[in-house]
Design a protein around this nucleic acid. Structure first.
Lengths: 183, 183
DNA sequence: CGTGTCATGTAATCAGTTACATGATTCA
DNA sequence: TGAATCATGTAACTGATTACATGACACG
């Protein structure tokens, strides 16, 4: 299960949209795919350099208004091919770990209230996320009507919304089941 | 986000149910919490030893019918306390990565058929999982009526079932959206 | 007798986060 | 002037998988 490095593809994918510096790549990831994909600077900087060495990216210095320079990365045709080849490969399944479920499963060692609290906290957290998703959804919908990239980003966003909804239903039901159980 | 080692708690939780050897711990994890939590031997063996050194587990040799010995681990009262303390702590959120969504988000670089295929493959994979969940559910339901540990394992199982169902709906809808989009 | 499962471990490797370090620019 | 953000990196650490190695026992 999933040993290969996929950070490179996330970076290529982001840079395929538009050239930018490492710092902006991080921001861009957070704002677009952040709810299902994260990258840290400790990965981004070295891997961008490595991708350039491989010829997948080309960097150049750009002067910002006030003298200071920044390193902009631009995807090359080789980089685009690399990205496309990966996109066409089957999705590898990656390990999935859920700490809430682990605590619930072993929950007979604690008071019921503890488990109900864990479920409640998680509900509140995902409700917060749900709000963010729906705001982004509105924003994207208004922005570009029926454009393909818009369609795809809405699809990923809808994944977040639907799984969140089903999580909330499950969590509420589970809280009630625990309340009514005898332990 | 999530830097602490939780393998120890998974092992303690499993051994809190009944004493067993490392090999059986692995099997037991696979059969009970396997769909949301995995552990490899490379983690299990060293961490069991470490837990014993800390006094959370006590090991003893047991002779199997045919002369050979095996090392059985049993949880101690200190181990139970360690588990309970962790169970009471708030659930830490861990990084979530979804490769299918990543490929969909960058999907405008490939043919629509590729994305539809990825969704189809994943649907088939989760349908297979769904079958397993529902079989376990039947089995657990028949086994123990209204026992607390049963309630809790059914709750975790229902998480699998409900999220799988909502995934399937989303995936089908998304396939249609992609079919009808212009790219 | 050979294959599969039981059983126990270690070493190499890797992906990834976090902390640390540094400095420029912006803006209240 | 001081805080926030922009910007670029490296080092340490760690969690985890995978591969490797070994051997007993079961069973057809």
């Amino acid at each position: 299960m999933a040993r290969v490095n996929k950070t490179r593809y996330a970076l290529l994918g982001i840079l395929a949209h538009s050239p930018m510096n490492a710092y902006e790549v991080k921001k861009s990831i957070e704002q677009s795919i952040g709810f299902f994909w994260q990258e840290s600077f400790g990965q981004i900087y070295p891997i961008l350099k490595q991708l350039e060495k491989e010829g997948c990216l080309k960097s150049f210095k750009e002067k910002k208004g006030s003298g200071s320079e920044t390193t902009i990365y631009k995807i090359t045709s080789k980089g685009k091919k690399e990205l496309k080849d990966w996109l066409e490969k089957p999705v590898e399944k990656s390990p999935y770990r859920n700490e809430l479920l682990l605590k619930l499963y072993f929950g007979d060692h604690v008071q019921k209230e503890v488990l109900i609290k864990h479920l409640q906290d998680t509900r509140e957290e995902v409700i917060r996320l749900m709000g963010i998703y729906e705001n982004i959804r509105k924003f994207v919908e208004e922005l570009g009507e029926s454009k393909a990239p818009t369609t795809l980003s809405l699809i990923t966003l809808d994944f977040g919304i639907t799984t969140t909804k089903s999580f909330l239903e499950w969590a509420e039901t589970s809280q009630n089941k625990i309340k009514n159980s005898n332990f």
